[in-house]
Design a protein around this nucleic acid. Structure first.
Length: 339
DNA sequence: CATCCGTGGTA
DNA sequence: TTACCAAGGAT
């Protein structure tokens, strides 16, 4: 007789049992009314998956709804301008995703006759589609078997199989992908993939996981060995460096001067207040703001001045049509428009 | 393989 | 306030 409290007694379910268990759970407790599930077309799935990279569902939903209205299909997106694309993406972050999605539309239209491929290998050729997204599109758009490993699956599998070690290391990462391949079912691929993500997002959460509600609680290694809070292994925390930034503000009745940033660095190709390399002497400070990126903090000072290479003055009413970085847009709204 | 790339929510 | 982190990918 199996003693579930003994550390070496826990055996994971076989793949077929595992899939059946979480698919049954998903049917009752999973998320089944997300906007990109209404019509799980390849295009809708592509858009949603690119938007969802490192971004929470609740944040993506309004962006997805607007995006589909403005760019209802691949052909429309492929014909849009980069500025139109960035204007729709503004505020969502990780802006290379927007340009990748734009490139993807052009690639599929010109190279693939407008049809997204249905295998992870072919999908990997699409700009912005990596190992996770290739599997996700295969499962969600085509309901075909594919391994998916994202943050949810890493956490779920590390706990369920009791995997020690840094999940970001190549060795552990390979181990998790191998499990994902081994456990993917031959049918119900879409619902299985959704079940994995739903379990990770709503039950097997990073903090305060709801193990008492988990359909896998009887065979979870971490739960049986009281290591739910120890797995997956946390990565070493890093303190973010702080950088100073100086931005030029030149606003009058005709609008505000903005420049389009380069394709490299932060906020690529977005429209921004001209950035100064240093604080000019006798600068007239208009205001300041702080902003936190994923890899550094920005202490920004806004200077009243006319930039030497002034380019484009944009009417304030037209700002919505340009892609602006979130903190720049906020600053203009709170410190310029309200005066 | 490590770093770069946003933003907002939450404890 | 601080720190963590989310349907990762490109280089």
């Amino acid at each position: 007789m199996i003693n579930k409290t003994s550390q070496d007694a826990i055996t994971p379910l076989l793949p077929k049992e595992f899939a059946h268990t979480i698919i049954t759970w998903q049917h009752q407790h999973g998320r089944n009314t997300l906007p990109w599930q209404r019509e799980a077309s390849p295009y809708h799935v592509l858009v949603s998956e690119l938007m969802l990279q490192q971004t929470q569902v609740s944040t993506v939903i309004p962006y997805f709804e607007r995006w589909i209205k403005v760019f209802p299909d691949l052909a429309t997106l492929a014909q849009a301008s980069e500025d139109q694309v960035l204007a729709q993406w503004q505020g969502l972050g990780y802006y290379s995703r927007a340009r990748n999605l734009h490139k993807a539309a052009g690639y599929v239209m010109t190279e693939l006759n407008g049809q997204l491929p249905a295998t992870p290998e072919s999908l990997r050729e699409v700009p912005g589609v990596g190992p996770y997204t290739a599997g996700a599109i295969t499962a969600f758009a085509f309901d075909k078997p594919a391994a998916i490993v994202d943050g949810n699956v890493k956490r779920l599998f590390c706990r369920y199989f009791g995997i020690n070690g840094d999940p970001n290391s190549s060795a552990i990462n390979r181990q998790i992908w191998t499990k994902a391949e081994e456990y993917k079912p031959h049918s119900n691929s879409r619902q299985y993939a959704q079940a994995l993500l739903d379990l990770g997002a709503t039950i097997c959460t990073p903090r305060n996981p709801k193990c008492e509600l988990c359909p896998l609680q009887q065979s979870c290694n971490a739960l049986a060995t009281d290591r739910v809070n120890l797995l997956p292994q946390k990565r070493a925390k890093r303190t973010l460096p702080t950088k100073d930034g100086y931005f030029a503000l030149d606003v009058n009745a005709n609008g505000v001067i903005l420049v389009q940033r380069s394709a490299n660095g932060i906020w690529p190709r977005l429209w921004c207040l001209p950035e100064l390399s240093e604080l000019p002497p006798r600068a007239q400070v208009h205001g300041s703001f702080k902003h936190v990126f994923s890899h550094y903090r920005l202490n920004a000072t806004v200077i009243n001045c006319t930039p030497s290479h002034a380019t484009t003055r944009i009417p304030l009413e037209a700002l919505a049509q340009y892609g602006l970085p979130a903190p720049i847009r906020k600053y203009i709204h709170t410190h310029v428009l309200e005066n």
